[in-house]
Design a protein around this nucleic acid. Structure first.
Lengths: 330, 330
DNA sequence: TTGTATGCGTTATCAC
DNA sequence: GTGATAACGCATACAA
């Protein structure tokens, strides 16, 4: 590895002068500056990040923790983060967790060890104490998922109201036997709130709750398939599905079509997140649009503000609006 | 930030001893080790990464450069990389480029400045000289896309043969007016080779080339829609589409359905990459399966080997097999 | 305008 | 078994 010293040697100046040229600081005569630049080029010198960053208090890096890198919905959150980050000379790094706590902790260490300046959590497996303690020491922003009752700042959506909107839509269209479909753990806030909305709406309208035991399937599409199979077996007269993601809705549609059940005439379906999947299905899927890009913007803005005023560990959370996009499936 | 010195002070030992305890090196009496551990816990001490890494020659980080984080196909490459990386105590960081050269260069700086030990390029906007020069100095692996005639190692697929397989399949099924559909620049190797296969197959079978001018659309689904519209206008008797990705195929299907054109009776469609999209469509999509997970495994393995033997900058490339998955759309 | 010297946080070598 | 200290690569205060 070429160091600043080798450059200094070749340009016949001191390391201080080389440093000045690199960082455009201090007065350096045009002649020597040129000599230094030539030496840098000849040696293909690039400053070692560890050396530089050891002397700064910031690394200029934020880390986003995602479930996986295959989700168009998360992608637009990332794009929002990147926009603000790049405007402020921050780099954005992403790591995946797959909902695995060991992985999440592994990458959170990068924050605790000051390899990155802040973390934006889009998935979260930490419990209340863990996230509180992390947030007390470091800039953390939670997007979508957050821990109930924790004081850490989150950028999210009122999943309960969104769920109610879906249910009112279905019930308003005359649906009476509505099932709920989700993936993963029920105890993450988004799923829990949607399910609470599902139950409340049915109870209030004196309709039956078809989905009581909530199974855990790992992957969206096949979860949808499995849930559809089970539901249609237990309740053949189901006339609507509220799917907690578009991909789950795709899996449900797949099974309905295999049984020649018409959508929406026989069974209506509503998805969630309004991703590209909602447009690739036939019929196109009714879904709930969340303002994902702006949630990313808000999260990164939050991190930057926190970085400016070290003291303020308790910033207000932001709840974004949602919109039910009606298409052909309901 | 708490430093090792503060821990030493509180435990009434030297920094050397604290370091020994942290890294389980050298002989430390159980009693003092315990005192140190208590101090570490009380102060919530975490070693500063920059301090540690300045003294190592490695950071234990690899960077994957992706177009974007919304692609199920890329996701399984990433998972292959992660598997090998974690087995070897490496962390995996991901950044997005969106095919933008400025972004790509921005993040490649992290390699050049030794913030990460190696880079796996899944998108590439660099030219032959740039990639060669980078590869001469640092561990670089290119997956899927690579620069023709460059000596840098790549993990890829014979896109030409894959393209030929698609074409033979369509022609074998009696299709005579076949159009080609792609997104983005034609001069990336994957698209270029598929298109070459498309032309060669048609020429060889004395069939007309419907797609001669190749337009650049940014996003898969809408690209498919636009291409379908244009093609059907110019060649209403088109009877098949070879789409260079599944999402493009989805866009094409969307337009065909709007015109009540039957798939595959009137028009057949074949996609590429065999992603989940191929299963969410109705009818399900014939597509080309690439061994994406193992390509990720191979890429990370390559990086690790290169890291072991610094000298060997010219490792052999690996070409993985492919498989045409026949479904209902053709 | 340029050079010398110090310190960032850590680990490793050496001495005790 | 433990401590003092040099070194990693760099930026900067201070001296010249």
């Amino acid at each position: 590895m070429t160091t600043i010293e080798e450059v200094a040697l070749r340009a016949k100046v001191s390391v201080a002068t080389v440093s000045r040229v690199i960082n455009d600081k201090g007065n350096v005569s045009p002649a020597t500056a040129e000599r230094v630049r030539i030496a840098i080029k000849e040696l293909k010198y690039q400053p070692n990040a560890m050396g530089v960053l050891l002397r700064r208090e910031r690394t200029g890096m934020v880390l986003i923790l995602l479930h996986s890198v295959d989700n168009p919905f998360f992608s637009s959150i990332v794009q929002g983060v990147e926009k603000i980050a790049h405007e402020n000379d921050y780099n954005v790094l992403i790591s995946t967790t797959y909902g695995d706590q060991a992985r999440e902790k592994r990458y959170i260490k990068l924050l605790q060890r000051h390899f990155v300046d802040g973390v934006i959590l889009i998935t979260n497996t930490l419990n209340r104490e863990e996230i509180q303690e992390l947030n007390a020491q470091f800039p953390v922003a939670q997007v979508l998922e957050y821990v109930e009752g924790s004081e850490t700042t989150h950028i999210s959506v009122d999943f309960y109201q969104a769920g109610r909107a879906v249910m009112e839509h279905l019930i308003g269209n005359g649906r009476k036997r509505i099932a709920f479909a989700h993936t993963g753990l029920i105890d993450i806030i988004s799923t829990k709130e949607k399910y609470r909305a599902y139950r409340d709406a049915l109870t209030q309208h004196q309709l039956p709750i078809l989905t009581s035991q909530l199974n855990v399937y790992p992957f969206g599409f096949s979860s949808g398939q499995s849930i559809a199979r089970e539901t249609l077996q237990d309740h053949p007269d189901t006339d609507a599905f509220f799917a907690s993601s578009d991909l789950i809705a795709c899996g449900i549609m797949d099974q309905l079509k295999q049984r020649n059940i018409r959508i929406p005439e026989d069974v209506a379906i509503v998805g969630f997140d309004n991703t590209i999947f909602a447009e690739t299905t036939q019929p196109k899927l009714t879904s709930v649009e969340l303002n994902s890009f702006n949630m990313g913007v808000a999260a990164m803005t939050l991190i930057l503000e926190r970085l400016k005023s070290q003291t303020d560990t308790h910033q207000p959370s932001i709840i974004f609006p949602f919109e039910l996009i009606q298409r052909e499936s309901s």
